[in-house]
């Protein structure tokens, strides 16, 4: 059983406080949806959790299975089982996914020799063209292809907790379904016998929620969660917008 525990998190970017006392716990097998207006700080949260440079944590704690995440470097956080699918995956010219996965395996003492086969298998499950995995990471990939590629990497890396920042943006209907299915499978069965995956999915659309079946929906406004509930919360949001939560 894994547990990502965020308590009273405050963080700043460029002297501006973006996260203002955010608390949230994500456990193995749980799917949490985080919904909030543009610019409310959702991606900032995902970056702060993964340790992106340029963000200053000014208060609160984050632990993964009791380990203080904020004390770890980004690769150490990944090795501890955290994964981030970014809203805007970065282009890395000349670097292909296999070598990245292999380096990540080596860093965590896993045997990298199975990576190519695993990539082919997972790509197939996600409906990814085999030629896509030979290409430079995210370079000249369409929006949807980038999201699929990030999902593929998640599946190969087999994290404990995945932060999915708008994984649904740019995906066509079929891709949304195959990506959601892959994530769901991981949340129920884990990766190759490991514990089930815990997910924090940032999204604007109920469409993803219909596919992903979240256990919890959180409304995120102005750097903190203002209300948490079940899927019915997303329906309220869909019908009335954020007005009720914005003062």
């Amino acid at each position: 059983m894994s547990e990502l525990v965020i308590e009273g998190l405050h963080a700043r970017v460029e002297e501006r406080e973006i996260l203002r006392g955010l608390s949230l716990t994500v456990r193995s097998g749980e799917v949490h949806a985080l919904m909030g207006p543009n610019g409310s700080g959702k991606s900032t949260l995902s970056h702060v959790l993964m340790g992106k440079p340029g963000y200053e944590v000014t208060g609160g704690t984050v632990t993964l299975d009791g380990v203080d995440l904020l004390e770890l470097t980004t690769p150490e956080r990944a090795a501890a089982g955290l994964f981030l699918a970014m809203q805007y995956p970065t282009e890395v010219p000349g670097v292909v996914v296999a070598e990245v996965m292999e380096e990540a395996f080596v860093a965590t003492g896993r045997d990298p020799s199975g990576v190519p086969a695993l990539l082919v298998e997972e790509a197939d499950a996600l409906g990814i063209e085999p030629s896509l995995i030979e290409r430079s990471l995210n370079v000249d990939l369409s929006g949807g292809e980038k999201k699929r590629s990030d999902t593929l990497q998640m599946a190969v890396l087999a994290p404990r907790i995945a932060l999915l920042d708008e994984i649904d943006s740019g995906l066509d209907v079929d891709a949304l379904r195959s990506v959601s299915r892959r994530v769901e499978l991981a949340t129920s069965e884990g990766f190759a016998g490991s514990e089930p995956l815990g997910v924090l999915a940032i999204t604007h659309y109920t469409r993803l929620l219909e596919e992903l079946h979240p256990d919890f929906v959180h409304i995120f406004v102005d750097g903190r969660i203002v209300e948490s509930g079940g899927p019915e919360l997303a329906d309220r949001l869909e019908a009335h917008g954020y007005a009720a939560w914005i003062n």
Binding site: P53, T73, V92, V100, E103, L137
Partner: peptide, 10 residues
């Protein structure tokens, strides 16, 4: 950061 977030050491 992108590569590090996948677990690749700096």
């Amino acid at each position: 950061f992108y590569l590090e977030s996948r677990g690749v050491p700096t």
